[in-house]
């Protein structure tokens, strides 16, 4: 995790907090790559595996041509599939890794994602030293990386293990937002669509989950998603039963990443946001017995610097995976 994230309310869950956002490297891109590399290596070590035994790793980040992931993959030399799902990459990679393992194609896989405030800022927004004001709805790209190993079996372990039991691939939903600072609003309908599809497909209700965790809707996006759920519930009887108690079990990684006083405005964003909170906090809490069944819904705003300049709207996407303690 980066310096700012290390001063936030989630700090105690993270395995490593940087003293400097350059992480001893010459560029922020290299720092992000190193961050991802370390979290991948730690995930493999914690699972008691060796990197030679990993059949494939699926990772992604926010940069053009997946710079951080690809250079990380060059250094660790594990078979690699690069993924881009904007900030939804963590669930995209977990979902695909689970499918590979469940289908019997792989025994051990690693899924991960990373983001870095400085690299994302430079690619999508303004130079760091430029004196400007961010609007209240803007979010702060988290300097963070997270990774998990997904295996067919790890044998006996002293603590219970988490299993991926369901996955829902999300549709791209474009609510027509043109303000690229307002990503929470651009992603909330996609998150709602995926959660609804997931609950309908599995025949479950939101109360069947101990926690439904979206990726990086932030404080504003979280409010919108809660309102969308409430509105649909009041319009449709079926939705009403599906989304009953949704408010009780729902939380957002972006909204809990920073303290209000950390000047991030609407909260955190970036692939690293849901990756680090899921891998750092939720998995640990599940294994300690706090949650039995969690729905992780990483959300992504599918913007590019070109689409933004050409005046296109910001389409949102969200993928969901159910994680259960076995």
């Amino acid at each position: 995790m980066g310096v700012k994230e290390g001063k936030g309310p989630q700090a105690r869950w993270f395995d490593k907090i940087l003293q400097d956002d350059y992480y001893g490297e010459k560029t922020f891109e290299k720092a992000e790559s190193k961050l991802l590399k370390n979290s991948i290596t730690m995930a493999i070590e914690k699972a008691g595996l060796k990197k030679q035994t990993i059949d494939v790793m699926l990772t992604g980040d926010l940069l053009n041509q997946l710079m951080s992931s690809s250079y990380m993959a060059r250094d660790v030399s594990i078979p690699y599939l690069g993924l881009y799902g904007a900030c939804s990459t963590m669930t995209e990679s977990i979902l695909l890794a689970s499918v590979l393992v469940d289908g019997g194609f792989c025994t051990h896989t690693v899924a991960g994602a990373s983001s870095h405030f400085a690299t994302a800022e430079r690619q999508f927004r303004m130079p760091l030293e430029h004196g400007n004001q961010r609007p209240p709805q803007a979010q702060w790209t988290a300097t963070a990386a997270g990774a998990v190993t997904i295996s067919q079996s790890l044998g006996r372990t002293d603590k219970p293990l988490c299993c991926i039991t369901h996955g829902t691939v999300g549709r791209v939903v474009d609510p027509g937002i043109t303000d690229t600072n307002f990503m929470g609003a651009a992603m909330a309908p996609a998150a709602f669509d995926t959660i609804r599809a997931h609950l309908t497909d599995t025949g479950r209700k939101s109360s069947d989950y101990d926690l439904i965790l979206t990726g990086d809707l932030g404080r504003v996006g979280k409010k919108i998603l809660l309102d969308l759920a409430l509105k649909k519930s009041s319009q449709d009887e079926k939705d009403e039963s599906v989304f009953r108690h949704f408010r009780k079990v729902y939380e957002d990684c972006g909204a809990i990443m920073y303290e209000d006083c950390q000047d991030t405005h609407a909260g955190g964003s970036g692939c690293g946001c849901s990756a680090s909170i899921f891998a750092g906090r939720i998995v640990k809490e599940m294994r300690a017995g706090k949650y039995k069944r969690v729905l992780l819904v990483s959300t992504g705003a599918l913007i590019s610097t070109i689409s933004k300049q050409q005046g296109e709207t910001v389409p949102g996407i969200a993928h969901a995976v159910t994680v259960e303690v076995m």
Partner: peptide
Amino acid sequence: QKYANSFK
């Protein structure tokens, strides 16, 4: 957009 703006 209008609906979302009411939340920010």
